[in-house]
Write a protein that binds this DNA or RNA. Structure first.
Lengths: 236, 236
DNA sequence: ACCTGAACACCGTTCAAGT
DNA sequence: ACCTGAACACCGTTCAAGT
């Protein structure tokens, strides 16, 4: 008995299984929980075994991002360029929201995998098909920036520290007064975002709204340049 | 003789000196070169000594970013809102270009230091002073996103691996053909960016142009919403 | 009271030794 | 030929022991 160890009884290690396990781990415990050693242990395998399937940790992260990109849904055919871009980007957003670690992984990766290139090519194709010149397509994709991956930076919204002791009412009052004095415009903005309900300021704002606001603003601007027959390498 | 060790002879350790040394080190060797131990060694000090001046590595990074933000120049007075925002953002860009590591540090930090808040407040103030409602100011700042820090994601431009062996002409031809087949739109874009000179495709494009293109496109869109008296919490 | 050496619990990756 | 244990050169941070 016990001729096979736990490791030997497991499904054979494949690149696919390594990557899927890493994605599940990152989904559950964040990108900080991804280490070659920890992942190997979860797979019941010696760390070096992973290096059969991924060259190093960077390639592991690239592969994880590729799995997220594979979740992007291509939109139905016969949309005009604007709806196609919109659908593709919002689909990317849904995938990135399912894998919150992907935001930082995408930002920190220098990645030009086939999955990345394929997605960018399909977006570029949507613009070209809508009558954008190659040049203008180039510029508008840069203008979209990381929004092509469906996320925006957080800027104002900071995850509240769950370990922080709840401040006393007096302390809260004091810091609020100080804040109002030093950062009056930020306070205004925060209050506007919560319809003046100061107690909800910490909740952050409606990120989905902000994302679509900016996306549609950009797409409208693009449309204007396209309609104007923008060609020159000059700014709008 | 030698009553004072090298460490003792040095200027006393201060938070300021720790942060400035870290910034200089990151400027020279990248963010990956920043470690508590390495930094301590450079300062001729035992690692634990740093913990007197920064609570932990996260706070060290926050402090480094703050030093970059302190390099932002407030613009001359009496600019209209658009020029003021433009000047502030382009000044931020100049600082970030001087400290290339700051891009990733800013993206990965969850930072709401006084320096960060102060800068965001000044930007928000420019919009408010230009007649933007608090609500619209909120949305347009989200739309600017990380561009308020003066950078855009790299998207297409990947630093060429200097260690990679120069591919043979035949291999280059083969990959080019394959690339053209799989990613025709990206190829078009890349060629447009280099005026059709394929040999310069690897160089990447004019990032400064792309940055200002997107910035001005956004500012124009903002101006349009402002002029229309945009108030509703609906998309543009 | 102050400071710090040693230690703890990790990393990614190499490589020689073992089967 | 294949696989892997041990090792290398690191991490951030804690804490007890020393001055």
């Amino acid at each position: 008995m016990a001729q096979q160890t736990g490791a030997a009884r497991r499904a054979p290690l494949t690149r696919e299984r390594v990557l899927r396990t890493a994605v599940a781990r990152a989904d559950a415990a964040g990108i900080g929980s991804i280490s070659m050693r920890g992942l190997a242990q979860e797979l019941g395998v010696v760390p070096m075994a992973l290096y059969k399937h991924v060259a190093n940790k960077d390639e592991l992260l690239d592969g994880m991002v590729d799995l997220v990109i594979e979740e992007f849904d291509p939109p139905a055919d016969a949309l005009d360029w604007k709806d196609e871009v919109r659908e593709r980007v919002l689909s990317a957003r849904r995938a990135v929201l399912r894998h919150p670690w992907a935001r930082l992984a995408i930002e920190s990766r220098t990645r030009r995998t086939p999955a990345v290139l394929g997605y960018m090519d399909s977006l570029a194709g949507a613009f070209r098909g809508g009558g954008f010149s190659a040049n203008l397509t180039h510029h508008v994709m840069h203008a979209l920036g990381n929004r092509i991956w469906g996320f925006t930076p957080e800027l104002f919204d900071e995850p509240a520290d769950p370990d922080a002791p709840p401040p006393t009412a007096a302390a809260q009052e004091a810091t609020a007064r100080q804040f109002a004095e030093r950062y009056p415009h930020i306070l205004e903005i925060a209050m506007a975002a919560t319809d003046g309900d100061l107690s909800r300021v910490g909740e952050g704002c409606d990120e989905q709204f902000e994302f679509e606001f900016a996306l549609d603003l950009l797409l409208d601007g693009f449309d204007r340049l396209r309609a104007e027959g923008w060609t020159s390498r000059r700014r709008p």
